[in-house]
Amino acid sequence: MLIDSGSPGAPATIGISLTINGEVRELQVAPWTTLLDLLREDLDLTGTKKGCDHGQCGACTVLVNGTRINSCLALAVMKDGAEIVTVEGLAKHAGQDGAMHPLQAAFVERDAFQCGYCTPGQLCSAAGMIAEGHATSREEIREAMSGNICRCGAYTNIVDAIEDVMHAGAAR
């Protein structure tokens, strides 16, 4: 329904169920639809960005069952039953009623972006990384965030913002 495969004899779309930013959605997807394209093109959740579309830039990072992944390399049909959190649902997911997620507030405070294109991916990646709990030092944060490219070069301030939130212990 949402995607015309344009291919004679192509298989019918497949019904899946996803919980996206807390809302259960019953969806029909063609098997070749990536999670990124489903979010952006079909569900109008355009906060998640398409940068390289090859898993190299991290702009498409979302949380799937609490884990950060590149949504451009995930087929939506394979995530049937999963809970997805995008940048639009990050604050709500952290229980922030109407307010920004602590990472969003810290990014503003620390001026952790210029153009902002990579920011949704940086935020979701940072939230996932903090939940993973393996990075503590500045060096470890830099290493753990290396899957998110910022062509404006705001890295120093991004790490500052993440450190603020980590030290405040407020991130989820």
Binding site: G55, S125, G128, E132, G147
Partner: peptide
Amino acid sequence: GASGQLRNA
């Protein structure tokens, strides 16, 4: 190898 996101998948 890879990145945090890729290693998760």
